[in-house]
Amino acid sequence: MTTQDQINTHTISVLVDNEAGVLARVIGLFSGRGYNIDSLTVAEVDDGAHTSRITVVTTGTPMVIEQIKAQLGRLVPVHRVVDLTVETDSVERELALIKVSGKGEARVEALRMSEAFRARVVDATPDSFVFELTGRTEKIDAFIGLMRPLGLKEVSRTGVAAIARGAEAM
């Protein structure tokens, strides 16, 4: 397999005008052209300028990733497209809310693990916890994996938010 055929994961940040339908344009582009979305987050980031930031984690060969960036750049309400994986050194974080239920030894073990992962307990009942955990996707995956035998009930994840390191803005 050459590097041209290799499928890699990329985190792409897209700064858009916060106007009606802009998210539909981005999502429609991915589904219409058969690109993957592994994770997607979107929120307004500047209410004065009415701009939103969309962070997409996607996978593809180098040619497909280039296409995704070019296609995103072509959308009229798009200000900037940055491939954080290639163009910069970046910080990526996800937040997850994780519900675990159980009694006795499993419950104690879940709480012990949450401390090791620096998760916070945001809700507790005699037979359940809701943990809040922030970190890289791998860390959250690992924690969820550990919770599974201990009574994992439900997971809600935000998807990846990412930003470049250093003083430069996008």
Binding site: Q4, M63, E66, Q67, A70, Q71, G73, R74
Partner: peptide, 11 residues
């Protein structure tokens, strides 16, 4: 004129 036409089908 369209950057997305470049390297789409043929490098």
């Amino acid at each position: 004129i369209d950057p997305s036409s470049i390297n789409k089908n043929v490098a």
